[in-house]
Design a binder for these strands. Structure first.
Length: 502
RNA sequence: GCUGCUAUAGUGUAGAGGCCAAUCAUGUCGGCCUUUCACGCCGACGACAGGGGUUCGAAUCCCCUUAGCAGCACCA
């Protein structure tokens, strides 16, 4: 029964259901749990460290926060956390911004922590004045031992005045890296040793920070707490690796009498199949193992964008995953499915013949084939392929076959002379092909095609594609019977495309 | 080791004591449609980690076991 026949039959037997037939299934993303206290809008943040481009892990954090800002309204702060000169790549600032834009995040404000050092110094002084922090000159290892035993180090007994003087000396450059740190006074008997008198400020002499001339830098738990308060952040969604940090930051909120934001900590997301660590990626690029930050073996957003994955698909996949506290493994399959629903209605169809065999079709008339650019959208028209006597066929599709149909063209019979195929015209009838269970395969005229490389993570496929593909640069197309691919370049009479998924 | 979090089908997810012989998506398999092994449609497969308790009744609450994860940095 054809679509049309179904429709008319349904019209006869149950016309009230006709509307339902017309409904397209919209796999819209689900609703995430509500956030408490979000009724009057929210202020949230995405706070990456500029050490490299954004990857799938960042996508989760940024998209989930973005989801709630869109849902409740409010502000979305992009906070560049560049307080560790050792972990700042000057080029990453630009890459982060590009990636944020690609993701389509609704950022309303951008702040750089390196612009705010004086603010942190100021609040650090206030914390010392409150008796909430002290300057510690113990060796890190020595302090660690004391801490694990729940013992105070001698520095903890200093007066506020002494601490203020030492703090000023830090700012004046009278200490060197590693000699001194400002510690938040917490609770040395806290059952979790991770909570005990953690560091808030330290000195970094080298390397120089690319944006600011300074040697005293706040540590994350201090700058984050101060900023979250000063920027009016109401809700924070981040990974559970920050649970301990949330507790540590709580001490600062308490010292200053600030109301902390509402926190949600989602579970760890394992991502297989790609490289994610910034250091691993950087080394690989340096050694030539990867072509760059967008190498398709990497898990960066620019890499998956190059493979034809759309930001909207990433977004939907992340919202599907949600903010659960369970550890999960990221599913490429689910992402591909989300991408396919975006890309399939748009992608034009073309033939790609991998590993081609050139044959003469004996007795074949010269024919024009008209293959729809998109079977679901006839208005887009068709591409025209002129088949003279010589055609390119995919080797894997004809091997062992005695009859195949060249899609939208005609049938051919194949006689095997050893492993040499002798191909002859076998009529135009589609019915014949079906009766003989001849596979319908893609093909190309031998004199009208473009060499094409289809790059995949597991290795590239060499072949030829239709000349029209050259006009699809940066678009996602579907190579029929092979899958979706993004046309990366089409220079110098050859095409290179990146495989996305089937 | 210490501290804490989590545990539903291959994967992701819903489920906040009876509406659950457990939702949806994805996946796989079968069928329909189709000159693509795409899309769409129909159907099937497939899970409450294990053990105790509380309760008339537990996927939902409690305890134990097991497993996974996170933190225990002068990184973020």
């Amino acid at each position: 029964m054809s679509q049309q026949e179904r429709k008319s039959l349904l019209l006869e037997i149950a016309p009230e259901l006709l509307d339902e037939l017309a409904e397209t299934h919209e796999r819209s993303s689900r609703e995430l749990p509500a956030l408490p206290g979000a009724g009057n809008g929210v202020v949230m943040r995405f706070a990456p460290n500029p050490s490299g481009p954004l990857h799938l892990g960042h996508a989760r954090a940024s998209v989930l926060n973005d989801y709630y800002v869109r849902r409740y309204g409010g502000r979305y702060v992009l906070r560049i956390e560049d307080t560790d000169p050792r972990r700042v790549d000057p080029e990453a600032y630009g890459m982060v911004l590009e990636d944020v834009e690609w993701l389509g995040l609704g950022i309303t404000d951008i702040v750089y922590q390196s612009d705010r050092l004086d603010i942190y110094y100021d609040w650090c002084r206030k914390l010392i004045e409150l008796g909430g922090a002290y300057v510690c000159v113990c060796e890190a290892e020595r302090f660690r031992e004391l801490k694990l035993r729940g013992k105070a180090c001698p520095c903890r007994e200093r007066t506020v005045e002494e601490n203020l003087e030492l703090w000023q000396q830090m700012l004046d450059g009278e200490f060197y890296e590693g000699d001194v740190t400002v510690r938040v006074k917490t609770d040395l008997t806290h059952p979790d040793p991770a909570m005990r008198d953690y560091s808030a400020m330290r000195i970094v002499n080298a390397p120089l920070h690319p944006r600011v001339d300074a040697t005293v830098f706040p540590l994350m738990n201090f700058s984050v707490a101060v900023d979250d308060h000063l920027l009016g952040i109401t809700h924070v969604i981040r990974g559970k690796d920050h649970i301990a940090n949330t507790r540590r930051q709580r001490y600062i909120f308490d010292y200053f009498g600030w109301e902390p934001p509402v926190y949600r900590h989602y579970g760890r997301m394992g991502i297989s199949g790609v490289v994610l660590s910034t250091s691993g990626m950087r080394e690989g690029i340096k050694s030539g193992l990867y072509t760059g930050w967008d190498d398709i073996h990497l898990g960066t957003l620019r890499a998956i964008a190059r493979r034809g994955i759309k930001a909207e698909a990433v977004r939907n996949a992340m919202i599907d995953i949600g903010i659960g506290e369970t550890d999960i493994s990221f599913s490429w399959e689910n992402l591909y499915s989300r991408n396919k629903e975006i890309v399939d209605p748009k992608a034009n169809r073309y033939f790609f013949v991998p590993d081609p065999v050139e044959v003469v079709v004996e007795g074949a008339p010269c024919r024009e084939a008209h293959a729809a650019l998109h079977p679901g959208d006839p208005s887009r028209g068709a591409r025209t392929l002129v088949a003279g006597g010589r055609v390119l066929l995919p080797k894997a599709d004809i091997e062992g076959k005695s009859m195949v149909r060249l899609k939208d063209l005609y049938n051919v019979r194949i006689a095997w002379d050893g492993d040499l195929p002798r191909v002859s015209y076998a009529g135009d009838s589609l019915e014949d092909a079906r009766r003989d269970k001849a596979p319908i395969i893609q093909w190309l005229p031998a004199d009208a095609n473009l060499p094409c490389t289809l790059l995949r993570q597991e290795g590239s496929l060499e072949g030829f594609c239709e000349p029209l593909v050259a006009g699809e640069r940066d678009n996602v197309v579907q190579f029929e019977r092979i899958g979706f691919a993004r046309v990366d370049s089409a220079d110098g009479g050859r095409v290179s495309a990146y495989f996305a998924h089937r």
